[in-house]
Write a protein that binds this DNA or RNA. Structure first.
Lengths: 329, 329
DNA sequence: TTGAAAGCGCTAACAC
DNA sequence: GTGTTAGCGCTTTCAA
């Protein structure tokens, strides 16, 4: 493997100095009033020999790594995987790379990873924050590290975030069950989590129940328990409360719920779930869903983060993006 | 933001030289016979002030970035997302980061990305190669860049790969339809692609059809056409050929197929798909699947790549991992 | 057993 | 307009 050319090789071969080459390569030819002829000669030569600047050296010198960190709970979750895909696209378009990782519901791992990313001079963070990350994110903020939170935010932390209009979405979904499907008793299945998006979805459901003068019937399930157990819990919840409609707070809870409905032939046919999923149009009774605007979310995240990095931000931004009710029947 | 400490700050504050600090930090204290007392003093101090070496500088000096590149077609595909999750876990355990990206079926983008990663001195590549990448991968190989292909390989390229036992899996699935479900006419739906894994799945199906003396009935659909059109094509395929069983070559084809089955009430109840999916146990007639060993695949990928990077590889490895038939009925 | 210093490839202040 | 050079933070050879 022949050694990679360096900028000084280029300069030497062309009989000029590295400065000149550097200026030309960094689009400062005009500014530094380097002759057009020379500029072209350098550019042509660089292209001919396929010279690429060493990003590492560049980063070391400039302190910018041109890399963003994406931290999510679980990259194999379709919502996060889709966000990741969009973010990555946009990042590459702007010359940024993405380092990503799944925190897997493990606060210590998460803290470690954030530190690790920071040590690697990540230019900015995109985080779906889990509980317990408040302090470490606060530290980043204190160090002026650009950050955008998404999917949820942390209440006592003043920073950028991009989230869906969860309360309004949950309200729409609940209202759809009550008003359009004439449900008499609507239960809500959610997870045992204090994350803001979950709280908002709960609030939306509650508001609808209040307005219709119905009892709120809520079960919070634990995410880390075996699926079989959860399935049985869901059956008990539906049967014991004589529900004729269910609102699921996320698509993965819905999938577990649908398993229970199928397994125990519960005959529930009024179902709404937050987050869309391929499965929902295929279930025996189609599931109406609140689909989040993945593209819109990603666009805002990148736009806010890049403007922070480029020092063009005008205070912290709080973006709330509407969801769409996808009716299936 | 207070400036980060550098190794020379540490040395200065401790009244010793950077060399000594560097040796101690890189576990060469013993080898260089630095006194235990000093070693401890340095280690304690480093911990106390929370000093972290600058990875960029380290990389620039050593030429190792401690970063791996993961290139897949589409990170939002569950198979790839799951592989990504596993790989990432293992990589971090070994002190490596993952830069990833989706090639989105775009050869030029893929080439560009590989070049980009290479320019960033990625230590190794993990690639699910698409058609047309032969040349650029060949170039990497010529430059002794560690590479592991997975999911498929490229026939005229001698390198490491980790794939599932696709032919055997497809054979098992087809045999299950014929032998256990007593299917009379089994059609295969696959995609219009020459990738090795697709070819092998086709071969497995064909072998079973041959052994049972049945006609092979195959439809290749185009991945990039609108879903509605594909759904209608699937219906025509099933109806025109009077099929009573279908073998789907991937889970996403299966999902489209299930949509057709549901939409047009085709009443097919003998269904097998390659790749498992949450949906398959929930469809009106459960779908038996061939599930790939994500963990096994990931383990092998990382193990091979790291031994290549550390120069411990003993020639190219070709790993073929069995799939499991998940019967549902 | 420890230290001085060169050098990885690049940018940019300063000199001419 | 173009060149010289210091220095980003680190590893490692060579010297002491």
């Amino acid at each position: 493997m022949k050694k990679r050319l360096s900028i000084s090789d280029i300069a030497k071969n062309l009989g000029i100095s590295v400065t000149t080459v550097s200026f030309i390569l960094n689009d400062k030819a005009k500014e530094k009033r380097i002759s057009d002829a020379l500029t072209h000669r350098v550019l042509d030569y660089v292209k001919k020999v396929g010279y690429k600047p060493n990003q590492l050296a560049k980063s070391l010198r400039t302190g910018k790594s041109k890399t963003l960190g994406l931290l999510v709970e679980d990259i194999s979750n379709t919502f996060f995987a889709n966000i990741a895909k969009q973010i990555e696209q946009r990042a590459y378009d702007h010359g940024y790379h993405i380092l990503y990782c799944s925190m897997n519901n493990d606060v210590n791992r998460a803290k470690e990873l954030i530190q690790l990313f920071h040590d690697r001079q990540i230019d900015g963070f995109i985080i779906a924050p889990t509980e317990g990350l408040s302090e470490v994110i606060h530290n980043l903020l204190k160090n002026n590290v650009p950050i955008v939170l998404f999917d949820r935010f942390i209440e006592d932390l003043d920073t950028n975030y991009v989230v869906s209009e969860n309360k309004q979405g949950a309200y729409m979904g609940s209202k759809y069950l009550l008003e359009d499907l004439k449900a008499t008793k609507v239960g809500m299945l959610t997870i045992n989590s204090a994350q803001t998006q979950m709280r908002s979805r709960l609030d939306g459901y509650m508001q609808a129940m209040d307005e219709w003068g119905r009892d709120a019937v809520i079960k919070k399930i634990q995410v880390d328990q075996p699926n079989d157990i959860t399935i049985d819990l869901v059956r008990d919840f539906i049967v014991d409360n004589k529900l004729d409609a269910v609102f699921f707070a996320t698509n993965y809870i819905a999938i577990t719920g649908l398993k229970a409905i199928k397994k125990y032939k519960l005959g529930i046919d009024k179902i709404v779930s937050f987050d869309d999923h391929a499965i929902f149009s295929l279930f025996q009774t189609p599931v109406t869903s609140l689909s989040q605007d993945i593209k819109g979310i990603s666009d805002h995240i990148i736009q806010i983060l890049l403007s922070e990095i480029n020092g063009k931000s005008k205070g912290y931004q709080h973006i709330v993006i509407p969801c769409e009710l996808k009716v299936r029947s």
